[in-house]
Design a protein around this nucleic acid. Structure first.
Lengths: 253, 253
DNA sequence: TAGTGGTCTAGACCACATC
DNA sequence: ATGTGGTCTAGACCACTAT
């Protein structure tokens, strides 16, 4: 017959569910409001719980929902813009940066890090842990790898670890002349330690921002920062306040 | 009793599985190699298929695996660095940019886009579709929204749509003086049309790069580009060639 | 047509937060 | 103790690719 092939595309249930839920979030729910629990939602839509969860997972990935074990599923606020500026010509730890030193140890880094730094795979480097908070919520966890050669004069510091040592190492780093920095962003999943710091479960999606700080002949420091992908929008430049969002958004009363 | 709380943390099976598989990928598989199918892998590890899939999903998210329906699961090559440069002081469509015009129509944009552009929610704008290819693979799909006021002199173009019109609109855009651009990166899931262009299933994780091009008093154009999150590492500056990776990597024979 | 990954079901139990 | 989301199972069927 001459009929044109009609839409033989059976849209997956979870995909359709996601659309329906998304529209409901725009029109019937406010930020912070708690949704019915998964068992009830599944029953209400006439699907298995696993199918419902597939839709919720996507909505959480898109930053529309927030799920917490033992608590429930809530409507997430719009993603917060986090500046990861393009050309702050400053070392990590410079006055006014957004990070807070947590700890510092001397340790052998992962092989991939050692390769980038150009240090030996068995050579320990200063490893500084920092965390970044925005609007009262932890948004990122960072590991900063600094070869011993970048901060040669650490004789005055006796603390073997802790935030005090972290601050001392960062202070020493400022003495070097910074040539430039190169950034890359990719998707990853949170390691157990980062997940804990970000108040998420291990494996949660994160945006991994890798920054190589160059000075003189090589890499003087390497930062690997993991941002919560569900709550963060990384901004470059001064567009931190802008909102690219989906629809109406009200505030819970 | 005085015993210290011993590790009562039962690691989820899929998490452990992921670790085991990840190590196997490093040591026993080459890039491009096909893994045993899911049913066999599940049987081999003594878990349900759904559990195995949870591990595979994470590994795919991290860019370690590539799964294609009807074909199988293969070991993915390292992510390709894609430059989304910080300060190309040029309009989209300028000579030598990485994008290829696909189509152009005049259409009413999503409300969120209209709000950013400052156009009315019912006002149609030029909507240019472009695609970006790297190493023979499609890596990104873009929608470029250009208010009619940004390209006033389109009288010479009679084609109502198609790549020819796209090129014409972009050419007109070059006449404006570009003041600056502001970028943001966030996680999203591919819409059906983008998914098709990226050769993925709808809902696949993507990195959404939003760029506002400013000229004079306001936003002269808005680009929303979706990059495959599994295969791409977005680079800023000249670090496109660098590899931050996990372990040994061999080539399939 | 055979084999792959993708979707879906109807259960069960577990870890966690809260009361 | 209760209720939430997180994990896991053992099936079934579907959509797609290749032969």
């Amino acid at each position: 017959m001459g009929t044109t092939q009609l839409e033989t595309v059976p849209e997956p249930k979870y995909w359709h569910l996601k659309t329906v839920l998304s529209e409901a979030l725009d029109s019937e729910f406010s930020v912070g409001e708690i949704l019915p629990n998964e068992r009830e939602l599944a029953a209400r839509f006439g699907v298995a719980r696993a199918t419902l969860r597939q839709a919720l997972e996507q909505l959480e990935l898109e930053g529309r929902l927030q799920r917490r074990r033992g608590v429930g599923t809530t409507v997430a606020p719009p993603r917060v813009g986090v500046d990861v500026g393009t050309e702050q010509h400053a070392w990590p730890g410079a006055a006014g940066d957004a990070w807070q030193p947590v700890d510092c140890v001397q340790d052998v880094p992962p092989a991939s890090v050692a390769d980038v730094l150009g240090t030996g795979r068995d050579e320990p480097v200063h490893t500084v842990r920092r965390s970044r908070v925005s609007h009262g919520q932890p948004v990122a966890a960072e590991l900063l790898y600094i070869p011993a050669s970048s901060v040669p004069d650490l004789s005055a510091i006796d603390a073997p670890s802790g935030p005090a040592r972290a601050r001392a190492v960062l202070r020493e780093l400022q003495r070097l002349e910074l040539d430039g920095q190169e950034r890359a962003v990719e998707l990853g999943s949170a390691r157990a330690d980062d997940a804990k710091e970000l108040d998420r479960l291990p494996g949660a999606p994160v945006l991994v921002v890798t920054t190589r700080f160059t000075a003189g002949d090589g890499i003087a420091a390497l930062s690997v920062a993991t941002y919560r992908a569900d709550t963060c929008r990384l901004t470059f430049g001064d567009s931190a306040g802008v909102e690219i969002h989906h629809g109406p958004e009200r505030q819970a009363s």
